[in-house]
Design a protein around this nucleic acid. Sequence first.
DNA 1: CTTTCGATGATCT
DNA 2: GATCATCGAAAGG
Length: 182
Amino acid sequence: MHIDFLQSPVVVARSLIGWTLLVNGVGGVIVETEAYDMDDEASHSFRGMTARNAAMFGEPGTAYVYRSYGLHWCLNLVCGPSGHGAAVLVRALEPTNGIDTMQQRRGVQALRLLTTGPGRVAQALGVDRSLDGLPLDRPPFALSPPGVARAVSIGVRVGITKAADRPWRFAMTGSAHLSRKL
DNA sequence: CTTTCGATGATCT
DNA sequence: GATCATCGAAAGG
């Protein structure tokens, strides 16, 4: 079983819910994602390729990492046809692997605060610019399929002002680890 | 419980 | 010079 990263970001974002994402063995189950596409005003790729978003136009199945608000990192999974400028933002995980490491990196104990939100996910998993453009199917990354099928809820994206009405946010129904209620 | 606001710096206009 | 795909602390109800 594998994710087909050639699919559209909406399809990939939906498919990723329930998969386990690890970086150097640390991480958890993906419970919240958002899709971003080229003809999407909210997307970094909307105005074409720049130095920052170059990885977004790279090979599907690679990482796009950017700095947010000058102090957080955010992790995206590039998808769509090569050079399409589409990606899925990983917004929240349910912590499962390397919890002690994540607690140290985050400086908090509560599982609830470890990986709920894109900035927190990146900090807990040790994601930074050095992973930008790297393939997701080999170390330090690891992606493994869900054990059991889970229901997925759909809503609008978070923290954007443009194209804010697109229902491009996906979450595991009933998860206690969402960045915001869906 | 909810809302507001400061931090902080790369990126783009 | 303005804008941010955020977080956390503080203030207000």
